[in-house]
Amino acid sequence: MTTYILSLVFAVVWVAVTGSGTLHNLIFGFALSTLSLWIVREQMSARGYWRRMGRILSLLVLFFKELALSAWKVAVLVMSPRMELKPGIFAYPLTVDRDFEITLLANLITLTPGTLSVDVSADRKTLFVHAIDCSDPEATKRDIATGFERKIMEAFR
């Protein structure tokens, strides 16, 4: 993950330094930074760069799909004449345990339909999620566990 961000940052820096924001230049900068990171791969111990990047991209696609879906669901809920709300906060047991992954998961949960992460317990084992429809928290938990959390595990482990 760090290598991916790094090479992207390097590509942007390349564009900024060379001062021509064409697509070719950006791609060239990306290739250049990937190459230079590949040269120092021993020090960074980044194996499976391309496979990992594919998984990160699939996570990104899932994220935007869920974002669109969630905005749509909120819109439908708000415009329905009689709002049947059962809001509530449920505890979600975390499987991921690194800070970065928890942050990512919390952000993704916030942007999925009807859920909003509120707090993480001090021992980092539980994420508290506010759901706009809390009538079936078990199903929501299952969705998160099989959707985002698994994808995050795949992408960053």
Partner: peptide
């Protein structure tokens, strides 16, 4: 956007702003 929403929700909940009375549960 999710970061600021998360911070606000956490701050509001820590300070004891109540959930609406329709709310079904509050594990936190």
């Amino acid at each position: 956007a999710p970061i600021s929403a998360h911070l606000l929700a956490m701050a509001a909940h820590k300070m004891g702003y109540p959930l609406h009375e329709q709310s079904v549960r509050d594990d936190l």
